[in-house]
Design a protein around this nucleic acid. Structure first.
Lengths: 223, 223
DNA sequence: AACGCAATAATTGTATACAATATGGTTGAC
DNA sequence: GTCAACCATATTGTATACAATTATTGCGTT
């Protein structure tokens, strides 16, 4: 039971940052936040350390904690890395995937199909998460899986925006099917390529992303 | 000027962990360490947060901080990811590298040659670091460069052990030459492949690594 | 003798008090 | 009138005191 006050605060602040409730460049006032959370500055400062480590805020000595939303450039850079990490997961998984993994992956694809039919974006979103995390684990490299999961989590708000684009659900589902088929065939190159294309921000997707970025509350001026 | 006590402590503890001065599974006593560093528990706890974020220690609620050295399996996993990250850096750099970057890379290769002639392992080690960091930056993706640098830093103690193996210096230098040549030719595939081979733990290198791992102070029993 | 429970001790988590540093405004000189 | 230096204020960094939780040890029971 991890009932540490600091952990709760970290998660809360993380939510507030990624949802845009806290604007970019905003300074996190320790006193104000401690009153808001009904605690002292101590657990807040511990939460700050963790947030700074994951890059969500910047900690300037004797000056305070500042929210750092990724710029459009940084976001594209992160997606570029994410695409490569996922491709590598797929490459390894093509050799190492177990039959149980494949069963679970098939389940998520079926669930995704159901979600598309029902036009249930939230459901699709969650099954999509499950598909990707299963894939990370199927790589057989737990360190890689952790790294991929972390970056995946950081890109979460932007992915959510992307899925709002009309027709993206169906396209995403079709790509999942291609990935899974390549995986079952055990062809590493095809799996990797399919995942890279699935994740990478390129062509029309870039314009969609840029549009949603500009429309999102995260788009406040950069430092 | 970042003269925070907590930052100094973090670096100190980091050193103590990676050098093996702190054994695996060892519990970090807040009171004992605060006396040793001549400070209170507060900056120590902040340092713990940062160390936990980079995976060097594990923070169990109400139980304390425990040193977590990577197991041989985890180490191999990390090298597997490192190889892929560097390969990707090379792939991008092959398209994006500037002439200034190439000049600097040539300088490090020359310095490495000098170090090999003088049989100066420390000098070679530092120039090797410089070569790789230049490459990360040359990828033109600063997020990727950061991620690569972080993992590179975490693998530092093990790489140092590897370079001790007889003949490894000359082989490493030769590989640097191949990488740089591929980079100058602008051939992404060759650069990526050369870097993957350079970093990957495979064949005889695996045995060398395993031997040095078992001989190192980090090899204490896993949790 | 072994197991379980309870009280005690030790350690972590949090609050508060104090010290050090940066920021902003005011005053003075040029 | 502008710039620079200095002081006042606010905020961060650290120390210490207190609360909450866990580990340990001893005792009693089976």
């Amino acid at each position: 039971m991890t009932l540490r006050r600091a952990d709760f605060i970290r998660e809360s602040l993380e939510q507030m940052i990624v949802t845009g409730a806290l604007a970019n460049g905003e300074r996190l006032d320790e006193t104000a936040l401690s009153e808001r959370f009904g605690c002292s500055r101590t657990p807040l400062r511990e939460a700050f350390q963790a947030l700074a480590a994951s890059g969500l805020i910047e900690l300037l000595p004797h000056r305070g904690a500042f929210v750092r939303h990724p710029s459009l450039t940084q976001m594209v850079e992160m997606f570029e890395v994410m695409a490569e990490l996922e491709a590598f997961c797929g490459r390894l998984a093509a050799r190492r995937v177990t039959s149980e993994d494949l069963v679970r992956l098939h389940e998520t694809v079926l669930a995704c199909e159901e979600a598309v039919r029902a036009n249930d974006h939230d459901c699709y979103y969650h099954e999509n998460e499950r598909f990707h995390h299963l894939l990370y684990r199927a790589s057989g490299n737990s360190f890689l899986a952790d790294q991929a999961s972390r970056l995946h989590a950081r890109l979460k708000p932007f992915r959510r925006l992307q899925l709002r684009v009309r027709g993206r659900l169906e396209q995403s589902l079709a790509e999942h099917r291609v990935i899974l088929e390549a995986l079952e065939n055990g062809s590493a190159d095809e799996t990797a390529a399919a995942l890279r294309d699935h994740v990478a921000v390129q062509g029309g997707k870039f314009n969609d992303l840029m549009a949603s970025y500009n429309a999102s509350p995260l788009s406040a001026q950069q430092a």
